[in-house]
């Protein structure tokens, strides 16, 4: 069942259309990646989901209800550059947040220490937020977003400003959230999305250009490659030219020839025979697994060309 349902949403600013007829459906207990280059409309979409903005047209439903102040109870949000009251301690911020969500005192007493522990902040509960590092602020951001056990959590570039260690911690935390809630995270860091997301949508120039489950996406949209390493650039170039005559599309790059893995498997005998017959020195063969980067670049560049 879809917990988040976005139906033909358009958002226009004065002279800019930030989102054009965006439709998305996100199932429960999914970590959903919203992938796109800077300025693609990721933050705008998240702000519409959190009621920080109103769509110019279209509808957004969370757990079956149109987005409003009431649906805020079902939602948690982490901003791209989270800013909290610098004079509050981590505990006070969560206490304040819990009260605003209408949590009872006993709920807050149980949940706040647990969240601080989960987010690795138990040693800093009484420290002022103004003294926090970027990574600590981000982890506190996740804690405040999931404190009230929302049905959906929206994380806007949750790891982009962090060092490798901080990124690893935050991504592990997001991974662990899957069991409790639905996560929509925006990012332009493809590794992060590929690592934790079950499903992904690529947004470019305010339009969704692709939405797919991660495994299906890599199977159907990404191309694994076979790299043939020759002894010289001349050999590689001649091999590429000859293979083209046999309708075998290959890309040559210095001493390397790259072929789609599926094509190589189909015509392996023919290719190796041609190489042997022409006495080109083949130094090695390697297999490159399809990545999200290939899909992303393919779809965003394709849209840019259009």
């Amino acid at each position: 069942m879809a917990i988040i349902d976005i139906h033909t949403v358009t958002k226009k600013y004065a002279s800019v259309t930030a989102l054009r007829s965006v439709s998305l459906s996100i199932p429960e207990h999914t970590v959903f990646g919203l992938l796109g280059p800077n300025g693609a409309g990721k933050t705008t979409l998240i702000r519409l989901l959190t009621n920080l903005m109103k769509p110019t047209s279209g509808e957004i439903h969370i757990d079956g209800n149109p987005v409003s102040r009431q649906t805020a109870q079902q939602v948690g949000y982490l901003a791209q550059m989270p800013t909290y009251y610098r004079w509050m301690s981590a505990y006070e911020l969560l206490e304040f947040s819990g009260k605003l969500y209408g949590m009872s005192e006993s709920q807050r007493k149980d949940r706040i220490p647990f969240m601080l522990e989960l987010c690795g902040l138990s040693a800093a509960t009484q420290r002022k937020i103004g003294e926090f590092s970027g990574g600590m602020r981000q982890r506190l951001g996740i804690a405040q977003a999931i404190l009230h056990e929302p049905k959906a959590v929206f994380l806007d570039e949750p790891a982009s400003a962090l060092d490798p260690q901080g990124r690893k911690e935050v991504l592990s935390l997001i991974d662990a959230l899957r069991a409790h809630t639905t996560v929509l995270m925006s990012s332009h860091i493809l590794d992060d999305v590929q690592r934790v997301c079950d499903e992904v949508a690529i947004i470019n120039h305010g339009e969704i250009v692709l939405q797919e489950r991660m495994d299906t996406l890599l199977e159907t949209h990404a191309q694994s490659l076979v790299h043939c390493q020759f002894a010289s650039e001349k050999d590689a170039l001649e091999a590429a030219q000859l293979l083209h005559r046999y309708d075998i599309g290959a890309t040559q790059e210095y001493e390397k020839l790259m072929l789609p893995a599926a094509l190589y498997e189909e015509k392996q005998q023919e290719i190796l025979s041609l190489i042997a017959a022409n006495q080109w020195q083949l130094k090695g063969l390697s297999y490159q697994k399809a990545t999200l980067e290939d899909v992303f670049l393919h779809h965003t560049q394709e849209a840019n060309h259009v």
């Binding site: 959190t50 009621n51 920080l52 102040r69 009431q70 805020a72 109870q73 939602v75 949000y77 901003a79 550059m81 989270p82 800013t83 909290y84 009251y85 947040s97 605003l100 969500y101 209408g102 405040q144």
Partner: peptide, 14 residues
């Protein structure tokens, strides 16, 4: 301007 208002507005706060 510093974004802390968003902290309130994403909550059920009128």
């Amino acid at each position: 301007s510093d974004g802390s208002l968003s902290f309130l507005l994403v909550r059920p706060v009128d």
